[in-house]
Design a protein around this nucleic acid. Structure first.
Length: 280
DNA sequence: CCGTGTGCCTGAAAGC
DNA sequence: TGCTTTCAGGCACACG
């Protein structure tokens, strides 16, 4: 469930806790899921970045970091999966603990264990194919309208295509549904016209920007409820127009929102204002 | 290369 | 009420 806005919010919140600290020990009991974490021990966190839904901790040798002002040669990659998040205290769902210089610790909690952690050499993402093939950041200048429209003209069903992370990075189930509603596109539409692609491009940018600004979406009441380490929920769930709104009236036309399964994902849309156009 | 199907994983919600 | 079943879903991987 954490998508780009939730990961970006996480990055901003934990950066002050990590920047400049040395990771003294990394504790977990699942070496296949959390790979090469011992390489992080003794290294200093010089910064945190994000690519799509991946969080990247920049790691430099403790002394080199001070000498060079932050050149890093390793990266600790975190994917939050469905239910991953950071906490200040250990809990029943803590999967990885980071012991930091200064005596503090940060814990990676992940009830459903879909999250991943790995240490790699800087920029070497061969072991993470989705990250290696990641499309442009939706809020960056690298995400161009013309290039997006060109790809969209040849796309298959548009929602699964968005979820592939290739045309644009960081879009998950919630923000795909919300963006398609805003763009008035049926989730199964193929081969978008130039006008349709333009609507979707601007919808994606608008939805992502607003969601980041509001600190992401917090849903549900249980362990899947996405919150930050300080317990603060995001606020974008109040702006959802279709996700989780099956049976409720569409905010544009009043038609009940429909929920179907598309590409094995729950998919919410308005059958009135998001009609499936005949293939051209 | 591409679309499709399956497994991973466990708490919450729904069903009986 | 208490047990069982279903559902949620990002991503890696196998398949045709």
């Amino acid at each position: 469930m954490p998508e780009l806005p939730e990961v970006e919010t996480t990055r901003r919140k934990i950066e002050p806790l990590l920047r400049g600290r040395v990771i003294e020990r990394v504790l977990h009991d699942a070496p296949h899921k959390y790979r090469d974490t011992a390489l992080a021990e003794g290294r200093r966190v010089t910064g945190l970045s994000r690519r799509g839904k991946y969080l990247l901790l920049h790691l430099a040798a403790g002394e080199a970091a001070e000498a060079t002002g932050g050149e890093h040669d390793l990266e600790l990659i975190v994917h939050l999966g469905m239910t991953g998040g950071f906490r200040l205290t250990r809990g029943p769902h803590t999967r990885v603990s980071f012991e930091l210089s200064g005596g503090e610790a940060l814990h990676f909690d992940d009830p459903r264990r879909f999250g991943k952690v790995a240490v790699v050499r800087r920029g070497e993402y061969a072991s993470m194919p989705t990250l290696a093939a990641m499309g442009p950041e939706p809020l960056s200048d690298d995400f161009g309208e013309a290039a997006f429209a060109e790809l969209a003209a040849r796309c298959g069903p548009v929602k699964p295509w968005l979820l592939s992370q290739k045309p644009v990075s960081g879009v998950g189930n919630i923000y795909a549904d919300e963006s398609l509603w805003l763009a008035r596109l049926h989730p199964a539409q193929t081969r978008l016209t130039e006008g349709e692609a333009a609507r979707l491009y601007h919808a994606l940018r608008g939805v992502m920007a607003e969601a980041v600004e509001r600190g992401g979406s917090s849903l549900g009441t249980g362990a899947g409820n996405y919150r930050q380490h300080d317990g603060e929920p995001g606020g974008f769930q109040h702006a959802h127009r279709v996700y989780g709104k099956a049976g409720e009236p569409c905010a544009r036309c009043g038609t009940p929102i429909q929920k179907v399964v598309l590409g094995q994902r729950g998919t919410h849309f308005c059958p009135q204002c998001q009609p499936l156009r005949d293939p051209t």
